[in-house]
Structure formats: structure tokens, C-alpha cells
Design a protein around this nucleic acid. Structure first.
Lengths: 344, 344
DNA sequence: CTGAAAGCGCTTACAG
DNA sequence: CTGAAAGCGCTTACAG
């Protein structure tokens, strides 16, 4: 077959330099078993021809991709606009880029998930999973990804039992929820409304569960759920606003900052001031949180670290054959803002 | 050489189905020149073996990647936290995923840019460029990318003359800046402080230039630049705060919403209320902007559309050989919020 | 230190 | 409708 394009190859370089292709290969990959003089000749030929190594051919030959896939299962196609996800991806790429790996991101909407086609065109050395949905749905996604037979790290998700090629890296969302509950209880709050959405994210669930766990032992403490169709400003605002027509909690609990702020706006428009009339807490404390007014009481997430550690754990597993740590849990910390009272 | 792994190949499928490898290939790629019965036998064999086509081998064979690269030149390694960039990427992936392409993102810090190594490991059918820095630095990046010899689209950047394999897709930032200036002039404002950063983004420059262009013909109108080391909350807050000790403009002009809000907080802490004591405008109106309080007067960007059109334009060029449009400019619109006065 | 041979998995002409 | 041959660009044993 005729060449489809005229890019120079190792063969061309070899001819110009008067050596064999594998000597060229050795020079490029710095194997160090080439004479200095020969290597110089090869480098000159590379310059002269403008030769660039074909990554595709190399990947093919070595059946190694130097690439990690990130799979996000989200109903929202614009999942990058979530600050935690953006931080997570930053952490992943910061680690991977340094060691010459690239990250391939794929977002799939659960309603369109099809085990046969979901991973078409994806070929990576490892996989990072950010899953949403009910436990059995998440298990389904994990089972499907296992067919790719590559080491996999789930982020923001507790481990599944009995899957060796699968590790977890997550932050202590449960503990963060507990921190918020203790703080609010100390201010005297007893009646709580928690904003939840139909899309289930295990991390958000953990925050909620951590919060509830503290209330259980407190007499008089009461938690109600405000179910929002999705986490857009409009929906959270409207849902909160409607609920406030019928009652008023001591505190509104958002499972992330966006929802907390949306609810805060609704409360303000009902003439309620934070923290005196109503308290509000969020979760994440990333990027835009510093711009919130009043500054939100929140738990500072470590999305970047979760991504960084997930990538590190995964690449280590690629190199050693096993995960050094099967469930990594990173700490979070409470940040007191202006939307909760000081101790009463 | 022995096989490095035991994944089934077309050969294995062919043997089981009792056909030749190219018949398997024809079935997989639905060439349609295979008898129904034979095709069924092949599909059964695929099922039985759990065969998955090797994307790498296919890419290698056809020297086509079905992949687009996004190159971001940014001093900030966490460039994903910028709402516009996140929207842009959403737009790119939304278009690309639908047609079976993937997006490879690479962020490079200008100080570390090295033409020889910048694109190591990147092999894509096309390139999208989001550049920062001075004009001649940007030109340098573009020249370097041209060595990859793939069609390239610059986003948020006006076209460079005389480069055929290069097109531009951007929004009307200049016009957006002009909209804001006209609006502020109508409120009676004459003295403006514009928040600028050391890192030069052509889009932000265009916003500033558009703004200035309107002031030029207005007697008494005065523009001063507040130079911020970077666009973090802390720096913009501090810079604005220091400046407010020495004077007070009629309006603060942020070239994006983040900076505008940061400046607004400084103004508030100086006892200035918007819009009565001081007016403030932003730019972008994406994601978190709805959460701003008071709601910022801004220009609504279309980062998603810019990304979507850039991807479409690029893939069309891949298929046809030339760009149908060399400079696409998308419209923006003014959104009046609560940080500017109504007409006086 | 350097090279001739073989092959990674796939698909495009070209025959039949 | 189906197949035998060739080759995409690279690198790993294996010789010398």
C-alpha cells in the first residue's frame, strides 16, 4: 500500500543517518546503548526531517496507552460546571500530566447507558469512576467497566466488596456532615431542612447520613428533607420558597454550596436574615464559595487531592500490579462563615 | 514474539466463526458486504469470546485518531475552575462525543512552554487553542502547533493572517464591552476603574477595548486600570480595597464576574453600596453568576456555543479539507442586574 | 555498539 | 459474498 501521508518515520531517519531503524528507536527512547557519535547523527537527521515519533504506533506496539479514562455518570451533560468535579479533574490532570499520562473524559447520562457501547473508543491503562444513581445502578456500571479489564479507582464512593482490581479514594463526607450537625446543634438549632435532589450521589448521601447520625441521639432534633427535582438555582429556590410558606426550620442544610446559596436567596426573599432568623450551611468551600455573601458556613472539600491521590493510586497499581490502598479517606474541615450563629 | 496479553483478536473470532479476519472486520464496521448468516455466526463468536475491537490498532491502521486536542496556555494550572473554560469544554465534548470523537485536554504554563516537548504524546486529528499571553507569544504557540500539521481552531482569539489551516471561533467580547460602557454612560457614570490582570487573555482585552471605544467620544469620561497580580479573590479584593483608600470611581468594571464580585466585596467593606454609591459590572453570566448577591449586571457569554461551534467547524474541516468559516463571531447580550442604576 | 527479523491488530486493495 | 497478502510505525528479543 502507498503511504497515506508523507510524515517521516524511523526508517527515513535511519536512512539519512546511515543506521538501522532500531538505533533510531534507541536514541529517541534514550535507551543509552548507542554511541555518542551515532546518536548525534541520528538527532541531526531527526532535526533535518522534522521527525516526530508516532504515539499511536508506539501505543500499538507496546500495548500501553499512557492514558487514564475518567467516566462520569451524570444526568447533567454539563457536569464540568460542578466545582467539585472541576477540582477533581484538576487534581487528576496535575498528577497525570507530570508523568506523561493523559486523561480522557467521558460523560454518560444514566438513561443512555448501554454496556455494549459505553466504552467504545475508550482504550486506557486505567479507569477512574465518578458514579451517581442508586447502589444497584452503580454496581451495574462498575460491573460493566470491569469488562475493560483495567485497574479502576472509584472516587467519592465507598468500596465494593470482592473486587480486587477496584479501589476507592474519597473524602470524609460522612464526617463532614457530622461536623456541621454538631456545630448547628451547639447553636441551639433543632429543626433542620435538608435539601436533597433526585439524582443520587454517594458522596452527598454520605454527607446527609453523617449529619443524621449526630441528630439521632438528640431529643427534640428533627430533620425534614426538601426534595428538589434538580440542583439548579431556579428549582432549589422555588422548592425552598414554597416550603417556607408552610413553615420555618432553624437551619437549612445544603449538601453543596450551590444549593445552600440558592436556598439562602429564597429565605432572604421571605424576609429571613441569616443567621438570626434562619441558619444555612453548605458543603465544598471551593472556587466561587469565597464570593458568597454572606460568607457561607461550609465544610471544605479536597476535590483536588481526591483527584490527585486517585491518579497516583491508580498509576502505582499499574506499575506494581496491585493497589497499595483499597480505601483512602481524606479529611475535611469545618469552616465557620456568617450564615450560622456562634455558640449560644 | 509471544502475545503480551490474552485479549481475543479478529483472528480468534475468525477461527471460531470459520471465516477470515477481514470478514470479521467487515461485520464489526458494518460494511454491509457480508451475508446475514455469516454475519450472525461472527456476532456469536464475538459474544462468546468477549471480543472488543482494539481502538489503538484501528487508529494505527487508518492513521486517524477520532480525537481532538484542546491546548490551554494558562499560568494557572487549575484552569478548569474558570467558569468560561468549563463551559467551553462542555460545548466541545457535547459535540464531539455525539460523533464518536474524544477530547484530550492539555494545560501548559507559559513559563514551561517548550516547542519540542509541548505536544509529546499528543496525536489528534485536530486542535483547539485557548491562548493567553502577549500577541507575539501567542503567535509563537500557534507556530509551534502548526508543526503538528493538523487543522486548528483558535477560540476567543481573532484570526491570524495568512494561515490557512487555522480558523477562529469567538464571541463578540468587543461588542459586549461596548454594551456595558453605553449602559454605564446612560446611568451618568463618567469615572471608571477597570480591573485587569497581568496574564493577558485576548478575549478579556477585547472586552476592555470595546469598553474604551465607547468612552473615546464622551467628553469627561475617564478610565483607569487597576492592575491585579492575578484574578484570585484575595488579590482583587486587596487591590480594589487599597485603591478605594485613595479615590472612588463611579463604576468598577470587572472583565469577568469573579473579579467583579471580588471588587464588590471590597467596596461593600468600605461602606459603599451598589449601585447607589458605586456601580459594578461583570462579564460572563455563567453558572455561579445566578448566585451572586446582589445580582450582578453582566454580559452573558456563550462559552458552550463557542466550544460547540469550534468542534463542529473543526470536524467539518477534517471531513471537507477546508474551513467553511475562518472567523466565527457569536453574539452576546447585556443582562441588567442590581449593581448598576437604571437610566438617570 | 549495531542490525535483520518478526510481529503487535487491524483494514485496504485486489482476486476469485 | 469471501479470502490471502501486504503493510501501517514501532520496538523486543536475539545475533553478531
Amino acid at each position: 500500500m502507498a503511504k497515506t501521508n508523507n510524515k517521516p518515520t524511523v526508517k527515513d531517519v535511519a536512512r539519512i543517518a546511515g543506521v538501522s531503524p532500531m538505533t533510531v528507536s534507541n536514541v529517541i527512547n534514550a535507551s543509552g546503548r548507542v554511541g555518542e557519535e551515532t546518536a548525534d547523527r541520528v538527532r541531526e537527521a531527526i532535526q533535518q526531517l522534522g521527525y516526530r515519533q508516532s504515539t499511536t504506533a508506539r501505543r500499538f506496539r507496546l500495548s500501553k496507552q499512557w492514558a487514564i479514562g475518567l467516566l462520569v455518570i451524570d444526568e447533567n451533560p454539563n457536569f464540568l460546571s460542578d466545582p467539585f468535579t472541576a477540582e477533581l479533574i484538576s487534581g487528576l490532570t496535575n498528577y497525570l500530566t507530570n508523568i506523561g499520562y493523559s486523561l480522557t473524559i467521558r460523560g454518560i447520562r444514566p438513561s443512555r447507558f448501554d454496556a455494549r457501547n459505553a466504552f467504545k473508543g475508550i482504550e486506557t491503562d486505567g479507569l477512574v469512576l465518578l458514579l451517581s444513581g442508586k447502589q444497584n445502578a452503580r454496581l451495574k456500571y462498575v460491573r460493566a467497566t470491569q469488562e475493560l479489564k483495567v485497574p479502576t479507582v472509584m472516587v467519592q464512593e465507598p468500596p465494593f466488596a470482592g473486587m480486587a482490581a477496584l479501589a476507592s479514594v474519597r473524602q470524609d463526607d460522612y464526617g463532614g456532615g457530622a461536623l456541621l450537625a454538631r456545630h448547628l446543634l451547639e447553636t441551639g438549632a433543632r429543626v433542620f431542612w435538608m435539601l436533597v435532589t433526585k439524582t443520587i450521589w454517594p458522596a452527598l448521601e454520605a454527607r446527609g447520613d453523617g449529619f443524621k447520625s449526630i441528630l439521632d441521639s438528640i431529643p427534640g432534633a428533627r430533620l425534614e428533607l426538601l426534595m428538589c427535582e434538580n440542583e439548579s438555582f431556579e428549582v432549589v429556590y422555588k422548592t425552598t420558597s414554597n416550603a417556607l410558606l408552610l413553615g420555618r426550620p432553624d437551619a437549612l442544610v445544603g449538601l453543596n454550596d450551590q444549593m445552600a446559596i440558592s436556598a439562602l436567596r429564597a429565605a432572604q426573599d421571605h424576609g429571613l436574615a441569616a443567621p438570626d432568623d434562619i441558619q444555612i450551611t453548605g458543603f465544598n468551600g471551593l472556587a466561587f464559595w469565597k464570593l458568597t455573601n454572606p460568607r457561607l458556613t461550609t465544610v471544605q472539600s479536597c476535590g483536588h487531592d481526591v483527584g490527585y491521590q486517585a491518579a497516583k493510586n491508580l498509576v502505582d497499581a499499574l506499575n506494581t500490579g496491585t493497589f497499595s490502598q483499597n480505601d483512602m479517606v481524606l479529611p475535611v474541615r469545618l469552616y465557620l462563615g456568617q450564615t450560622t450563629s456562634s455558640r449560644k
